[in-house]
Structures are given as C-alpha cells and as structure tokens.
Design a binder for these strands. Structure first.
Lengths: 230, 230
DNA sequence: CTGATTTGTAATCATTCTGTAAGAAACCCG
DNA sequence: CGGGTTTCTTACAGAATGATTACAAATCAG
C-alpha cells in the first residue's frame, strides 16, 4: 500500500484526484497549502507527492526545494499555466514530473504509477518471493502462471489475481467483499455473487473434484481461504 | 560505497544529478568536458559513468569508445531528444544505457543502480551474455541481429528493441505499457495499440504461423512473454 | 530530391473473458 | 424436519482485449 500526498488549494481538485488514486488502491493524504504539505511529509512515510504550484502562502516550488533537501521522493507538480518557463523552473527545483491544468485525472494517475515504480525500483529490488506454494498448487508471480502438481493450468487475468490474493494471505479467511476490493480496487456493492462465480471457475480448473475442494476452501458465513501445506 | 562520475557541460544538470546520487549514498565525481572525464577515469576506481553526448571539445561518444579500450565500467549516455539516431550509435559505441534529456532524475538514478548491480554481480566478468536464446530464436545483442532456426531475419530498430526487452525478461509477462516505457523511454499514455501492432509485425517475421505464436505468447489481460526453452 | 522503408494511429474483426441472473444444492439452527 | 440463509452451478449477452488490415506521416537511403 503506497501513500500519496495531494496538495492543492482547490478542494474540487483534491476530491477528484483523491477518488482516482483510491480507485487504484493508493492511500491518499490531503493538504491545502505548502505548510501542511511539509508537515505531512515529515510525519508520514510517503511514496509520491502531488503539488500545486500556485498556492496561497508557500508555493509549490518552494515546497519542492525544501523537500529535496533531505528526500528523494517523487514530486509531481500541477500548474494552471502551460508556460514552459514554469515547467523548466519546476524541474530544476527538483520536481520529477509536471502536469498542466486542466489535466486528465487518468493521465495524472498514470504518471503517479510510473514515478512510484521508478522510485521503489531503487530500493530493495525483488525481495518478494516470486513463487507461492500450497501443496501441489504453485503460482509464479513473475510469469503469471499457475501449476497444479506440475501441470500448467490456464487461468484468466481476474482468476489469477484472486488466486494470488488468496495465496498471499494463505491461512487467512477472506470475505467475498475483501476479495472484491483487493482485486477490483472498488467499493464492493452488491457484488458478492461475482466473486463466488470466479471462485467456481477457478475450482473448475485447479481442483480435481470441485465438489470437494482441496485448495480453495469455504468457511461458512465468512469467506474463502487457502491453507498452508494443504 | 560506489564512485560515480557525472560529466556534463551544463552545471545545473551536474548539480541536480549530484544531489540525487548523493541522497542514494553514492560518491560523486564531476567533470564538465570529455578530457576531464578521461582524467578522472584514469586516476579513480569508478563504478559507473554518466556522460553527456553533446559537449564542447571531446564529445560523449568519443569518450565512450576511448574508455572502452581498457575498461568495462557501465556507461550511461545523456542525449537531447532531437539526436535520436545518436542513441543507437551510442550503444554500438559501447555504452550500456542512455537517457534522453530532459530526463527524470529518479529514472537516471534507477538506471545507475541497475547498471551497478549488473556490473558488480557479474564480478566484472567479461562474459556478459551476448546471445539470447529461446528455442530456435536467437538474438545477438552485439551484432544486433536475429535468427530463427539459423535463418537470419531482418527486423527494424524498434522491433529489435522490443524483442530484446522480451528476451532479457524471458519467462516474465510484460504489459504493453512496460514494453512501451522500456523501449521508448517515455510515459506510456494511450499507446497500448502501438505495441500491439509492433508485436504483430515481429510475429509476421519470426513465427512460422503468426496465428499460433511459438515465441511471443499473449497472456490475456496482462501482456506478452517469451518462454524459456520454448 | 525521390522513392523505399519504417512507424504510429485508427478502424474493423475475432476471440476470449466477465458479470449477472436464476435455480439448485448445501448448510445452519430451532 | 423445515425455513431461512449461504454457497454452488449453469448459461448467456455484451464488454473487453488482442489480431489484423490499411493508411498517412515520418524517416532514411541513394
């Protein structure tokens, strides 16, 4: 879960950006001026900062250079002007990317993603286990493949994501809502059935006898789980 | 502690890059022209060199080839966007990577890190794999040629880069966005189709039957991959 | 400068995937 | 056992994705 700070004096923008970022599974912090932004940045471990340039009090460029004194966090600037002068100033102050208002929220999200990928790729690369196992069931998170007793099984993208989520939380029972929100990054509303059907389809593929599931077990009234060493 | 030499005639770039690298714990040496760079390289044990191509006096490409006469250190070139052809030239002169200006400092740092990791993990072994293979598909990364079952295949520059990227990450599934960013060094925004078409053209050339691809396989909803030992 | 090649984009086609609904079956509790 | 709830199963329409083709702009070679 990545933490992102959005700082703008326009509440409408703050709201809109927050929603888009949350839909992608990010944790959003808000600030409406430079001072607030710096405070949040000091007290929280952030992974990306989105700053408006034009703000009352301390402007975005000043915030940027203050942050750069001790942090390498990706900073994306927002500005109403599409003038090149601001752009150059922003980047030379230490910003990493630049979006001009009015902007397409999806583009902003894309840039956030890309910045975070680069930033985190600096740190401990690939310490995550790339193969998840439970009995004869194996899941290669890099090749995105699933094998049962050595036999490759073809699963679809969503099926894979559900399986991965269950495997990452092996031994824990997960409700259909939890699964839905983890996989779709959306509020789960009247969608319990959807997950159920996907589970069914996964079972069809990985279980010898879907009636007596060996891997994906149901816990009545609560949800599903995959045991360790099943 | 790794030593990195940054060489550029633009002091602003030098300053900015220095700060980013120092924040990551690197020891930074500076040079503002080719001659200086070579001097530093002779007298210091460096682990990575960042070179601007456009410099007064000796240009980056010349420096690269001079360095390559007796050193295997990773070299990353900086080039202005307009000098696109320089990229290919740069790599054939012996550079290991390139970044186009204006660049994202975090991206540069990421590339430095990746180069150093590769360099040191090889233990300065000269046996850098220059031929990538998967079944009958072979890719000579030095001659920049592709052969299928021994038969040479003519591919264009972008096609080659896509293939190389897929081959370097053999077994991993790569999304069209990942491919786009790796090959074009640009933000991937609304460009999914472009990669798709290139993949199609590559298949036309290397697959016996493009309908049933033997090498470049699609993973629905995720991306493309080339398997090991196909 | 001209013609050939390469490259990006858009439009269309084919296939695969996904959510929903509806009924059946399994489970829990009194 | 029986009612109420939860999960399973099936089928299907349309949504999403990748493949394919065509074309114009950009680039390159001679």
């Amino acid at each position: 879960m990545y933490n992102i700070l959005v700082c703008d004096d326009d509440k409408a923008i703050l709201d809109s950006v927050e929603i888009y970022l949350q839909n992608e599974g990010y944790n959003v912090y808000r600030a409406s001026n430079g001072i607030e932004a710096l405070k949040v940045a000091e007290s929280t471990e952030l992974h990306c900062i989105i700053l408006d340039i034009m703000m009352p009090g301390m402007d975005g460029l000043t915030v940027t250079s203050k942050l750069r004194q001790n942090k390498n966090i990706p900073i994306i600037l927002l500005s109403a002007k599409s003038e090149d002068t601001d752009k150059i100033a922003g980047l030379s102050f230490g910003a990493d990317d630049y979006v001009t208002k009015p902007f397409n929220p999806l583009e902003l999200v894309a840039r956030v993603k890309s910045q975070i990928r680069r930033y985190t790729s600096l740190g401990s690369m690939e310490t995550k286990e790339s193969v998840l196992k439970s009995g004869g069931l194996e899941l290669d998170t890099e090749a995105k493949t699933v094998t049962v007793d050595g036999e490759p099984v073809k699963v679809t993208a969503t099926e894979y994501k559900i399986l991965e989520y269950l495997m990452e939380n092996m031994g824990h029972v997960l409700s259909t809502n939890q699964i839905y929100e983890a996989v779709w990054h959306e509020e789960a509303f009247a969608t319990e059935k959807t997950v159920t059907v996907h589970i069914r389809r996964i079972r069809e593929k990985i279980e010898i006898n879907p009636k007596e599931p060996k891997y994906i077990k149901v816990v009545w009234g609560i949800g599903y789980k995959i045991d360790k060493e099943s």
